[in-house]
Every structure is written in C-alpha cells, then in structure tokens.
Write a protein that binds this DNA or RNA. Structure first.
Lengths: 285, 285
DNA sequence: GCCTTTCCATACCCGCACGGTATCGTCGCG
DNA sequence: CGCGACGATACCGTGCGGGTATGGAAAGGC
C-alpha cells in the first residue's frame, strides 16, 4: 500500500477547490506542469480517477469529492499536530482557555479558583473570541473552550456539561413585547436578530455583532433583539428588559477540549470545572 | 509556517515507539543515519525537542509525547482517506455495513428492506466481525456499523440511536443463579465473564471469545456466564437461562458512521434505519 | 472553416534532498 | 583501560520534485 503524502493532498485540495490547474498552481506558488503530474501520479497510486478533465472545464469525480473532504481532515490534523507540539514544548507552560465574554454563566471565577487549588496547576491564559471559537480547539490553538450546546458543533471534541440554562429574550424597555411575562418563538417573527460572525445561516438578518457590549448597545437602540442564556441577566443594562422564551431550547454551557487529549493540566482543569458545576447545580438548581 | 510531512511522522512514530534509532530504522526498512537526520530536522522545524538522547537510552519529551499521539491521528486519517477514496472509486458501489452476528437486535432485516425501498439504494455488503468493530469505521474499511453504547467508544463517529435494551444474565440452567427471577451485578462477583478480543480491561477474566455460537456453547458447558442485551433471548439454546440484571446499565443499539460523511447512499441508510427504529419503539416499547 | 485562445499534457533538464556507506564521539561496563 | 553499543557526522550518488518550452485538443469569433 503506497503512502499518501501531505504535499500531494495540499496540491489536490488546491486543484479541487479551484477546479482549474493554472489558478491552483498560482495559489501554490508553482507552475502548472508539475502540478498536473502530481495529480496524475496521485490518481495512479490510488488507482482512481479524481478529476474529469474536459478541455475547458475540470470537475470532481465522486471519488475526488471524497478525497477532498478527507484531505481537509488530514491537513487540519497535521497543522493541529504541529501547533500542539510546539505549544507543548514552550518554556512557559500555560493552559489556554477560550471564552466568549459574558458567556461563562458566572462560573468562571469559581472554576479558575478551584483549578489553581489543584496540584500542578498551570497559569491559565484567557482568550476572548466571538464566532467560531470551536475552531481554535480543532486547530490546536487552545486547550479548552467554554461553548454552548446545541449552538456550537461539538463533533470531534470531548465535553463536560457545566450547567443548563433557559433562554431569555432581551429587548429595550420600549419594545412591543417588553410588558409580557413570557414569549414564544413565534412572537419573534420578523424581529431583527443578531448575526454572529461565521454563522451565516438563515433566520438571523440583523447587523453582524462582535462583542457583548456592542450587542447590548444595539438592543438598547432598538436596532435588534436577542435570545440569550439566562445567566446574562446579571450583566444587563438598566434600560433593557428580559423575559423567558417558553419554547426556546435550553442551552447547556459545556467545557470542550480536543478528543484524546492527555495533558494532566487539562485533566485537572476539567476536574475543577466539573466540581464547581456540580456544586452550583447542587444548590442553585 | 513549515509543512509537516507524512514521511516524517511515520519516522518519528517508529522512533517514539521503539525508543531506539537502530530498531526503528530496521522497522522502516532503512538505515539509522538518515533517520537520525530526519528527526533532527523535524525538531529544528518545530523548534522543539522531541527526544531526550542519553547515550544509552532514548526517551520522549513532553512535546514528543504530544506529537506521538497527534501523529497517530494524522496517519490514521491519511490511510483512512486513501481507503475511502479507493472505495468511492470502485466500479461496483456498495454500502459496507459491519455487524456483530446476533447483535442487531432483530432490526436488521427490516432496516435492509426499508433501505432497499429508498431511491438510489446500493447493494449492502454485510461484514461480520467481533471485537474492535468501530476501528473498521475509523480505518475507512466500512461505511457504517451497528454498535452498542456505552460498550463501544464512539468518539469521532456520528450516531443514530436505534433501540435501548435492558441486559440479561445468560447462564446454564444448572447455575446457582438460574432459579432467580432477577439478579444484580454484585451477584456476579467471581463469575468468569467472557473476554472480548481487544477489550483487555479488568473485570473480564474468562477465556477469549470470538463468536456468539462459541460463547453460548461455553456458557452451556458451565465455563462462563455473560451479560447480554435482552434481544438475544430469541437466539438462546434450550439449555440456557436468562434473567434480568437489575442494575446493569441499559445498552443502546446505535448505527454509527464516520463524522462528516456525505454519501447520499449512507444518508438514505441512516434514514431507513431511523424510520424502522422509530416504528419499533412505537409499538414495542 | 480557419485562426485564435485557452487549457491540460508531454518532453526535457536541473538541483536538491533523501537515502546509503564509512567513520567518529561518547558513554557504560567488564 | 579497552571494548561494545549507539547516536551523530561526513560524504556521496541518484531519484524525484520543480522549472521552461512545447504539443495538442476543444471552444469561440469572424
């Protein structure tokens, strides 16, 4: 069984994405002929046609589509491997935790305290980031992240549930729904909801939002409303109102980390977080 | 950022596993000097020490241990990519489903029928295999598998629950517990339980077992007992008895497939299986 | 219908890096 | 102190990855 090389996968990915040998070669910083040969050789070694070459157009075969997807997985794994190794070799070991400002459900201080009490705890570096936080984990840029299920895609990650919250509709006090004690999702038809960077799917049609202060400001200005976990209640400005959304799926705050991670520092952090979460749900409900 | 090549990862994995450059080189079918240089170059490019060389012993550094784990992931992904691509390019497209004989909970015929009724259904190739069935999925040798949660490790796989079953203790009619109407796990202390190939963890201390007929035979001979999902009741020999185990965690039969799979044939199969399972729990409970 | 344009494939050449052989340096042990 | 084991270094050849030049086929314009 012939080996499959990373370089070949990079080449193939470029061609498969461009569907054009010339452009792909330019993107790779090389010329077209060696690229053509590399792809041919790849096809020969796999014994499979990956591309249909019309003289004017290039298209993926079924097998080519499969290899494109698989290649991305391999390349992601490879660059994550490099990054994680480099980070593990750094002289100043740290635990990188990525959070969304305001998205910690108020548990973070207690978790950090509990972690620092663990033996062998490392300094924790907090990275604040909005959209696409799970990507930082998959890329090997961070050790752990606070995410929300089901909002985030958790495939390929291991997780520890921390706390489940109902969701609130946050709006200016002048809003037509501000007097209600509860609303349901149908009431929100036509309301401008925030668009989170990276989540370009349907439904959200308001302006794009990058930070919690900005979001609350825009809500206060009447430009939009938002459905948020109930723990943000503590952080609301005086000019905003929040009422429960009855039929919004509850959101679970989870601690997530890359599958198969073995670092004892991470294990200690997960232990600490689980302990804090257990205590919190223990009293609080 | 320098590229990380598959060849280098193969080399490093060999050295990291052997902890000996000479043996690693032999295993790779090459001589020692180029191997040493390749590892040095890898360390230089990553800017990290991977191995501690004593003159008499080689040991992994912290970063080396990380890279070993990551390398295995990358290499697994790469060979899975090759296999999946080759299979996608085959002239006779088939859907490969791996099952454990007797482990289908009786749902399989209905699922296969429902799938064949789907538009564009492919011929289904059944592969029977005992231990380590999930590995066939991860290696790209199969499209889907019937597995049991929590018995199998499902990380890295997408799943569809099919049916949840309580578990039964299966034993010869002469067994000391054969007269009981129910037992609990503590009653089984000291009983020889089957060892499944690949699951070498504690608790199971009986002979290794590779197939259901063999297992039932050994039980009938009084050599062991087993805790099995209740759907095997239909397949029991007359000389065996089965009673519920009260505190054994219920087992869920799941259909599993590699994450991010996009094949329409697989999607249709999942749909068919979900429909059958929904109907089954609909009447049966 | 022919010429042009636009691609990918082929032919040929070169340099480098990968792998081999020979040897050294170093540590541990008798 | 000398020998053996093992990784590192030195040096060399060759195969392969990449470059330039050119061929060849198909689509489009006049």
């Amino acid at each position: 069984m012939e080996r499959l090389e990373v370089r070949e996968l990079v080449y193939f990915t470029a061609v498969a994405e461009e569907l054009h040998f010339g452009r792909a070669a330019a993107r790779l910083g090389m010329t077209q002929p060696p690229l053509s040969r590399a792809i041919q050789q790849l096809e020969r070694r796999l014994g499979v046609a990956l591309l249909e070459r019309g003289s004017r157009r290039v298209a993926l075969t079924e097998a080519g589509a499969v290899l494109l997807r698989e290649s991305r997985a391999v390349l992601d794994a490879a660059s994550a491997a490099a990054r994680r190794t480099r980070r593990a070799g750094r002289a100043d070991p740290r635990l990188v935790l990525v959070i969304k400002p305001g998205g910690d459900g108020g548990l973070l201080p207690a978790i950090l305290d509990a972690y620092q009490a663990e033996p062998g705890a490392l300094p924790v570096e907090l990275v604040c980031s909005f959209g696409e936080r799970e990507i930082l984990l998959r890329e090997g840029r961070a050790d752990a992240a606070l995410l929300h299920r089901p909002r985030h895609d958790l495939t390929g990650l291991d997780t520890q549930d921390l706390m489940t919250e109902t969701q609130l509709l946050v709006m200016p006090s002048s809003h037509r729904l501000a007097g209600r004690t509860r609303v349901c999702l149908d009431d929100l038809a036509g309301e401008p909801l925030p668009r989170w960077p990276g989540a370009s799917e349907g439904g959200s049609h308001g302006p794009e939002v990058h930070d919690l202060g900005q979001l609350l400001h825009l809500i206060a200005l009447g430009r939009m409303v938002a459905v948020l976990p109930s723990s943000i209640r503590d952080q609301l400005r005086a000019d905003l109102v929040a009422v429960p959304v009855d039929d919004a799926e509850p959101t679970t705050l989870v601690l997530a980390w890359p599958e198969h991670a073995t670092s004892p520092a991470l294990a200690a952090f997960v232990r600490a977080a689980a302990a804090v979460a257990g205590k919190a749900t223990g009293h609080g409900g």
